[in-house]
């Protein structure tokens, strides 16, 4: 053990020496840039605003929002080096919470998910998961500070975090009254979606790249083949297996778009 420690110390000293006497003559040029990932939410082309905005839904229904929130996990940038794919981790987990968005201006501005310095490179993709990654989903809130994103939103009996919540009020009969409450909570490893958006994300030294990730509730609720979550039939699903929960879990990747 002691021998190993001495060897380690020697290696460290050598590394420091080489580092200090390295061949670069550029000691001042910044080798990092900044990446910012914002998140917005819409219903189709309409900014997603809590309470006041009526959203036209299928078959004459309308709804208003009260909450949309979702976890994002293992957010990383992808790049190639010597022909091999490499990743630059940005954040292990974030909770994108839109429940305090009350105005169109706030909805359009979105919320900041990540803002951090990264090595300046020509990245080739943004990769992340929607929900809580299986590794993190195997943890429990007491593993974290109460202020940590994973310090809450946990199903004790299902051993899973609630990956995303969609809550609001529906007008099912066109009466103008939004009396039917909508509450869909989805979790479980089976509803975790790994997402990758490929495309150049070039970050120059001292430069910044701003990405915007949008969640479109219309595409979350309505499939391209016309199938949709029928609020007249189901207004509540708190589950990892209920049909409406699985429907939304499967649809989540379709609801995402990334702009640079």
């Amino acid at each position: 053990m002691k021998l190993l420690s001495r060897f380690s110390l020697l290696a460290l000293s050598a590394a420091l020496l080489f580092s200090a006497c390295g061949g670069t003559d550029d000691n001042t040029a910044p080798d990092t840039g900044r990446i910012t990932l914002n998140a917005t939410a819409t219903y189709g082309s309409l900014p997603l605003v809590m309470f006041d905005q009526n959203y036209d839904y299928e078959d004459g229904m309308q709804f208003q929002m009260q909450l949309f929130q979702t976890y994002l996990s293992d957010i990383e940038l992808v790049y190639m080096e010597n022909g091999a794919e490499m990743t630059e981790p940005l954040l292990d987990v974030a909770l994108a919470e839109f429940g305090d968005i009350y105005t169109i201006a706030d909805a359009e501005a979105g919320i900041e998910v990540v803002k951090t310095d990264v090595p300046a490179r020509n990245y080739t993709a943004l990769r992340f998961g929607v929900g809580v990654s299986p590794a993190l989903n195997a943890t429990v809130p007491p593993d974290y500070e109460v202020t940590h994103p994973l310090g809450q939103n946990y199903w004790e009996d299902a051993n899973s975090y609630i990956f995303f919540k969609f809550e609001g009020n529906a007008d099912l009969d066109g009466s103008g009254g939004f009396q039917d409450k909508l509450t869909f909570h989805v979790g479980g490893d089976n509803n975790y979606n790994s997402i990758e958006f490929t495309g150049a994300i070039d970050i120059a030294p001292d430069g910044e790249a701003v990405l915007n990730l949008n969640f479109d509730m219309e595409k979350l609720l309505i499939r391209s083949n016309g199938d949709y979550v029928d609020f007249r039939q189901v207004r509540q699903a708190h589950s990892n297996t209920a049909p409406a929960a699985v429907f939304m879990g499967e649809n989540m990747p379709n609801a995402l778009s990334l702009t640079r």
Binding site: E156, H185, A237, H238, S239, A245
Partner: peptide, 16 residues
């Protein structure tokens, strides 16, 4: 109290 993963049609208090 804890039945959070109930069937969608099942009424429950939802205390948790």
């Amino acid at each position: 109290f804890f039945v959070e993963t109930a069937l969608p049609t099942q009424e429950h208090p939802g205390c948790s």
